[in-house]
Design a protein around this nucleic acid. Structure first.
Lengths: 225, 225
DNA sequence: TGCCAACAATGACCAACAGTCATAATATGA
DNA sequence: TCATATTATGACTGTTGGTCATTGTTGGCA
């Protein structure tokens, strides 16, 4: 049983790698299951022994990528300058996205709620877990920044959503393959630096606002117009 | 010829409205062309007299929505406090997204480059034009802020991409239908306020950074760590 | 080694759907 | 009223995701 199982596992990896290669070459939407099976040297029916639907292949690739990224961010660690560490993590994530545009496209595709609904709870919870992992990482970085006195104590929501939005924006841009038809076409490195700066600036500014409101009392309807 | 033409035009609007209604009810991916035709009370073949592909229906809905939004932002105008006006436009856009999640989903779908490639140049240029319209609007708001002394003169790229990323993030969140499985579940209005604050804070902070670098000389490799 | 049972791989097959086109219905105009 | 041009239609086609009865393979046992 052990050996067969090993073979089975190996083939799953081969399948994923083959699928990814084809997706990169021809666009993930155009590639058919039959093509993947063919390229992997197995029958089409066998693919469905590993993945219940084509969508599961997408989901696996997206999840594995996201998982590897999270691990890479964790390896980076938190230095004695917390905001600098946060910027470094942000910048690293941009670079990883840039190196793996197909995976980013798949991630965006898989994040859609109808998609996850179709996948079933097994995968939904894996996506949810990863999201928790990312939120936790951000929280740790934020708390480190507070502990080191780089930003004031502030409720996490007042900065988290802005950061999250920034990530999504860059994902969308990377998935779109850069700047295409744009008039002002910065190279990606410059673009990444601008957005990273923007996100850190937003974090600093928003946390200052948050702290002010907090001091005035949490229930203030903060319409600063 | 005039009368028939009128009928034809009317039916196109009916088709789009019917399609949108079905998309809202059953999810745009699940709805078939036959269903749309049926609900509109015409034959399936007739749909293809109006739209060359199903994707063109998506594109039309996305384009029309985006166009209407841009007009709404323009109507808002620029008051004597430019940053407040910008925040108002941002906030308005969030509200419009919130009211029209299906259109937001379609917009995200249609922005993907493979999608636009398949559509052909006719539609590609319409999307590109809209993008120019948005960039121009942002530029005007930014210049007004500079003219009123609210922020220093700064190259547009150093702030534009951050803002753009923020918009995308909110679009993704709205398309995902809010916060679903989250532990901390703010209501949408609070969420929108946070992100809007974050974006304005980022704008202020990043333009300050940009101005500093500018003063030091534009070619500085600005590695502030 | 030869045989059998359990298991795995396969590709012909099915259903669903986007898109086509020959034909039917309708409008136009003399 | 009839002939002709125009428009609407849904049966049809090709493609693809997914299924399953059949075929092939493996491993244990006599």
């Amino acid at each position: 049983m052990g050996y067969q199982d090993e073979v089975f596992r190996k083939r799953e990896q081969t399948l994923l790698a083959t699928a990814l290669k084809l997706f990169q070459k021809h666009g993930w939407e155009q590639v058919t299951v039959a093509q993947v099976a063919d390229a992997a040297g197995i029958g089409k029916g066998t693919v469905y022994k590993h993945f219940a639907t084509k969508d599961e292949i997408y989901a696996r690739l997206a999840l594995d990528f996201s998982q590897r990224c999270l691990e890479a961010y964790r390896r980076q660690g938190i230095g004695d300058q917390a905001l600098a560490s946060m910027r470094a993590v942000i910048r690293l994530s941009f670079d990883l996205m840039h190196q793996h545009p197909t995976e980013v496209q798949l991630s965006l595709h898989c994040e859609r709620p109808e998609f996850q609904e179709r996948l079933g709870p097994r995968f939904q919870s894996r996506f949810a877990e990863l999201e928790v992992g990312y939120t936790r990482l951000f929280n740790e970085l934020l708390e480190a920044a507070v502990a080191r006195g780089e930003i004031p104590q502030v409720p996490i929501e007042s900065v988290f959503w802005g950061i999250e939005a920034g990530f999504h924006g860059v994902m969308a841009r990377v998935a779109a393959g850069g700047f295409g038809h744009w008039s002002t076409t910065p190279d990606m490195a410059r673009y990444f630096d601008h957005v990273a700066d923007f996100m850190i600036a937003g974090l600093l500014g928003a946390s200052a606002i948050g702290a002010t409101l907090e001091r005035q009392g949490p229930n203030t309807e903060g319409e600063s117009t």
